[in-house]
Simulated scan of single mutants.
Amino acid sequence: MKNIGIEKESLSSLAVRTIIDLIENDVFKIGEKLDAEQKLADKLNISRPILREALQKLELEGYIVRKHGVGTFVISKTPMLTTGIEKLDSMTDLVKAQNYTVGTIGITEPEVTHDEEIRGLLRLNDEEILLSFERIRTADKKPFALDRIYIPEKYVSTDFITNYANSSILSYLSSAQNIQIFSSHCSLFAENASAADAEKLGIIQHEALQVLEQTFYSNANDPIFHGKSLIVNNIMKFHIVRRR
């Protein structure tokens, strides 16, 4: 039987690690345009095809962006968070799974909202009160998502803001309310950042955001809460596996 072994690291992977080191050490600065491909390949002592392969990986990971006819630009010192969307995990768990420290800033006090569309999604009667609040999620202290949470008052404990609003809502419902979230009806689309949202996320106005909007259901198929997350494009992206 032929031996099965681990192949040596490819030249493109070595080039990726080298360029990341140069970015992390500010040799290649954020916002800086990189040299033309042949000149950069010569500097790194690799072939142009190897460099192109490395640049493709770096763009997928969110370190650079390549603009046709303009050039290649450094946009981040940290890799983009990537995750499958088919499994229902909290945003907190998704980020932690990729070895980032998750944080929450900018939590607002819950306030009464009369959004009839969301009240309808949550099947609330006229007497039930719907609350909403905002929070900004961070990965290694860098904002990556602005959450807008809509949750009926009956599910919000008196210590919710002080003890739970900065972490996973799914975990809160499970531990404090004994409600297990079983599924979500989810929409994923793009939206341009308003001036206010851009300021909160540290991006420019009108920058495209990924929007993940979900209504969460219990194992009895009762709608429990609704969330809308505005996600920065160069920090997190989702992938979906589709099969026939």
Rank of each mutant, 00 (worst) to 15 (best):
H114W: 06
D140M: 08
L131S: 05
E128I: 07
I107Q: 00
I107K: 06
A145S: 15
G106K: 12
I118Q: 02
A145W: 07
L121T: 02
S132H: 13
L130E: 05
P110C: 11
G106I: 03
D115I: 04
E111R: 13
A145D: 07
L124Y: 05
A139E: 07
F133V: 02
I107A: 07
E128V: 08
E111S: 15
H114S: 10
D126W: 04
T138L: 09
T138F: 09
D115L: 02
E117V: 14
L124E: 03
V112E: 15
T108Y: 08
V112I: 15
D115W: 01
E116K: 14
D126E: 14
R123V: 05
K142Q: 15
D115Q: 03
K142C: 02
S132A: 14
F133W: 14
R123N: 12
K141C: 06
L131A: 10
A139V: 09
T108V: 11
F144R: 05
G120I: 01
A139C: 08
E109G: 01
R148I: 14
R148Q: 14
L121H: 06
D147A: 14
D147E: 15
I136H: 04
I129V: 15
T138Q: 08
G106D: 13
R119N: 04
L130W: 04
R137W: 01
I118K: 00
R148H: 12
E117T: 13
E109V: 11
A145H: 08
E109L: 14
H114T: 12
I105M: 10
G120V: 05
E116V: 07
A145R: 07
V112A: 11
T104H: 03
P110N: 12
L131H: 07
E127S: 12
T138S: 12
D126S: 15
T108M: 11
T108F: 12
R148C: 09
R148D: 03
E117G: 03
K141V: 07
S132N: 10
K141P: 00
L130T: 04
E109K: 14
R119K: 15
E111W: 09
I136R: 01
